[in-house]
Design a protein around this nucleic acid. Structure first.
Length: 219
DNA sequence: GCATTAACAGCCG
DNA sequence: CGGCTGTTAATGC
């Protein structure tokens, strides 16, 4: 299992790891529907998606589910809880079989202390997430299902968070439904609407985005 | 009206 | 064949 090379290939910052630090990271395969991490657990690791697709969500005490965002290949999350030393607020579920990397807190903290490039990586990532959250707050009430799908797709194509993702997105309609909280059929309809507006072109198991800014600002 | 579930045929890998 | 997609009908808020 070539976890070291996988990790290096995953992100540029990983090359800053010493061999000893890299040995402390673990990589495992999470099956479709499996938990990548649980809500409420003590946070001791920073988590990266090397391959696959993960949904960040929370379940209320009533069992009500709210999905926040998807994390695509190349994405890292959990730094908030890691920095604050709080129990994890959200859970992460693999929407398809995924390769997940776990970096121990000690390694994360020493990288942060010793490596300015890593600090910069984190800062840019946090800033990007903040921007995402702001745009969700700004538009949420006004957006119908089509808009939510558009926003979801745009966030998965964020070139800052997922560098290696191009303009084609390999996501099924059902996965989009799980991310935005809509039925597969409704997602299908939304995609047809977006296609009519020349914002994207749907294909089998994938779609090509023609107008990313148009998706972001979809009303 | 609008979204959801259920069901089915067609298509792709 | 199995999973994904496109469509329709019935049901619920």
């Amino acid at each position: 299992m070539p976890t070291l090379t996988e990790l290096s290939a995953a992100s540029r910052w990983a090359s800053a790891l010493t061999p000893k630090q890299r040995d402390k990271a673990t990589v495992r395969t999470v099956p479709k529907g499996g938990y990548v991490c649980h809500k409420g657990e003590a946070v001791s690791q920073w988590i990266g998606v090397l391959e696959g697709l993960v949904k960040i969500a929370t379940t209320s005490s009533e069992g009500k589910l709210a999905a926040f965002t998807g994390i695509a290949a190349g994405g890292w999350f959990g730094e908030g809880s890691l920095l604050k030393e709080e129990p994890r607020h959200y859970e992460a579920v693999a929407l398809r079989e995924s390769r997940i990397a776990y970096v121990p807190r000690a390694v994360f903290l020493s990288l942060l202390a010793d490596n300015t490039g890593f600090g910069r990586f984190l800062l840019v990532q946090l800033n990007e997430r903040l921007g995402l959250a702001m745009s969700i707050i700004e538009h949420q009430r006004l957006l119908g299902p089509d808009g939510r799908v558009a926003r979801c797709l745009a966030s998965l194509l964020n070139p800052t968070l997922y560098p290696e993702v191009g303009l084609t997105l390999h996501v099924s309609q059902e996965e989009i439904g799980l991310l935005v909280g809509l039925s597969r059929q409704r997602v299908n309809l939304a995609l047809r609407h977006l296609q009519e507006r020349q914002l994207l072109r749907t294909e089998h198991l994938s779609m090509t985005i023609l107008d990313l800014d148009g998706l972001r600002s979809f009303t």
